[in-house]
Computed example of a mutant assay.
Amino acid sequence: MRSDRVRLLQTLPHGCGYYRGRTAQNLVLDPSAADLPELYAAALGRGFRRAGGHVYIPHCPGCHACVPCRIPVGTFAPDRSQRRCLARNADLELIPAAPGFTPERHGLYARYLHGRHRGGGMDDASDEDFTRFLTAPWSPTLFLELRKDGRLLGVAVTDVCSTGVSAVYTFFDPEESARGLGTYAVLRQIQFARERGLPHVYLGFWIERHPKMDYKRRFRPLEVLRGGNWETL
């Protein structure tokens, strides 16, 4: 990514979303850049991530807990637990759909936040909040819907780029927790990428020993970005 092609902006300090009491900052690609869709594909390989219309990477003074990670599709092999998860959800249909708000999706999203992330600051997400957080006019996004006999059980918000797919966000029916739909969504995104000849599934940031982020190490091999180089964890 050439510095003369895009500006990097630094956010003001804000509360860390992962550790209470810590302050965080991000570097953000200039959201007004005309070639942001092309830059985004390259930025994934540099550890950036999308939230809404912003492509960012943590840049926190004195803290390097957030480590970009990705799954190399060609060498990934599910372990025994993941194979059981695939079998347990063999009755689900995956439907690639256009992104955006629908009452059905928003209802599922609201139930997920209330059931899994209560008190996280997003409990009462409005229609506009849903659209602003999960989509952007320029982003190459699909909503991979997981359905059982037509009933929507989960949505994996997935950006599809030339460098791979980015698992932006997944939400699912909290009453179906026994299915392991979070794990299943990642496994299906790996399959989705493999079928399209895409080399990587980007999982955002891995945080060692964090109760909500350390699960990513279970997808092996997992590559992490350290010192500007991708290496196997």
Rank of each mutant, 00 (worst) to 15 (best):
G100N: 11
P68K: 03
R111D: 09
H114W: 14
P78A: 08
L92M: 04
R84V: 09
I95P: 00
T131I: 10
P72M: 01
E104K: 09
R111G: 00
Y109I: 10
V73F: 02
R83N: 07
R88Q: 14
E104M: 08
T131Q: 15
R116I: 04
L134A: 01
R116T: 05
D123H: 09
D79W: 09
A136F: 00
F76R: 05
A90Q: 11
F133S: 04
E128V: 13
A77Q: 14
L146R: 02
H117D: 08
L134F: 10
D91W: 02
S126I: 06
I95C: 13
C66V: 12
H117F: 12
H117Y: 15
G62L: 08
L113W: 09
C63S: 11
C63K: 06
E93F: 05
G100H: 09
L108E: 04
C63A: 07
H114G: 04
P99H: 10
D91G: 14
S139H: 04
P137G: 12
F101C: 03
P78M: 10
A97N: 06
H106D: 07
H106T: 07
L94Q: 09
A90N: 01
R88E: 06
D123S: 04
G74K: 00
H106W: 15
R88N: 13
C85Q: 12
M122D: 04
C66F: 05
Q82K: 02
A65V: 10
C69R: 02
S81Q: 14
A65D: 15
R105W: 03
L86Q: 13
D91H: 13
P78K: 07
Q82A: 01
D129I: 06
R147C: 02
S126L: 07
P68Q: 00
S126C: 09
R80G: 02
D123C: 02
A97S: 15
E128C: 01
C63N: 08
R132W: 08
S139Y: 01
F76L: 03
G120I: 11
R147A: 04
F76P: 04
A87N: 12
P68T: 00
P99N: 12
N89A: 09
P96I: 12
D124C: 08
S126F: 04
E104N: 01
S81D: 12
F130G: 04
E93W: 04
E104P: 00
H114K: 14
L134S: 02
F130R: 00
I71S: 07
R147L: 06
A77F: 00
R116E: 12
S139D: 09
P96Y: 11
W138S: 07
L94P: 00
R80P: 00
P72C: 01
A98Q: 15
L108F: 05
T75P: 08
L86K: 01
D123A: 07
I71F: 07
Y109L: 10
H64D: 15
H64Y: 11
H117W: 13
A125T: 11
F143E: 12
H64E: 15
G119A: 11
R105A: 13
A97P: 00
C63T: 10
L142E: 15
M122E: 05
R83W: 12
E104H: 08
D129T: 06
L92G: 07
Y112N: 02
H114Q: 15
A125C: 14
A77M: 05
R84S: 11
T75L: 05
G100V: 03
S139E: 12
C69W: 06
C69D: 04
R80E: 13
S126K: 10
L146V: 00
R84E: 10
Q82R: 13
Y112G: 05
L113G: 05
F133E: 03
M122K: 09
A97L: 05
